[in-house]
Amino acid sequence: MRIVSELDEIAISSPIGSTGRALALAATALAAFLGLAASAMAQSEMLERGAVLFAAAGCANCHTDRKNQGPLLAGGRSLITPFGTFYAPNITPHPEFGIGAWSDEDFIRALREGVAPDGSHYFPSFPYTSYTNMTDEDMLAIKAYIFSLEPVAQESRPHELDFPYDQRWALPFWKWLHFEPGPKPLAEGQPDEVRRGAYLVEAVSHCGECHTPRGRLGGLDRSMWLAGSSDGAEGEKVPNITPDAETGIGDWSADDITFLLSMGLLPDGDVVGSTMWEVVSDGTDQLSAEDQEAIAAYLMALPPIEHRP
């Protein structure tokens, strides 16, 4: 399913003619019926779209404790950072333990601004710094999908952070330094395919959150965009994916990239490992071939940066 087009308008040509009241009435009834059918269809399309976006955005990778076979989205996976260990919370539609009581506005605000319904600020370990560039429609499609899943009554585990990083009140300052709420236009002036790739990479799949090195305060170093990092989510090295021939993936073809995104295969016949496998499996492998090709086109159009993490 292709996700980055405008929500397809469902065009219903009006069957109302000009001959008499009965006909008009019948037509109104028909139109009402078609309207209902259309909204049911829009609903199921929205869920389908939400499922693909949800996969590509990797929400379940952080919000599910996969290592211990924890329930989907009930929270718990540990994210090791230089600032301490984060545990992504329960975001199942449970009204008390999850986000079941959230309105559309609450949800959009969390992803767009990194702000909770009570007005407190989120740590950027929740990659709202990327999601901020998603469209409202895409955010709401994800919400609809999450709300179609099982609610789980399980308390979220508190983060274990080192001072001073445990100071939530300091976050507005961090955000002021490192964050600008979107959506901002991405890859302006580039061909459509590259722009679609930019949206998927920068807003949805947040590839940069792992593949870009961070500065001392944890902000992404944009001058080293996708040039590799030595602090992955599990303390692993994350490779340079700019098209630099020596240190990046300059010798990969577009095909090589789509084979990775759709099957997890590396050019040498091996399979990709660690957190990248999670990105691919039930993640980018759910995207349409067209969207995978768009990501490849975007990566290949990046400026090459020489950097070995």
Partner: peptide, 21 residues
């Protein structure tokens, strides 16, 4: 079919192989 097969490799390696740099 090739994609489905490759993913069985990935799933097993993810669980049981130490990834070297």
């Amino acid at each position: 079919a090739f994609g489905d097969m490759s993913k069985t490799c990935g799933g097993c390696h993810q669980a049981y192989r130490v990834k070297k740099d």
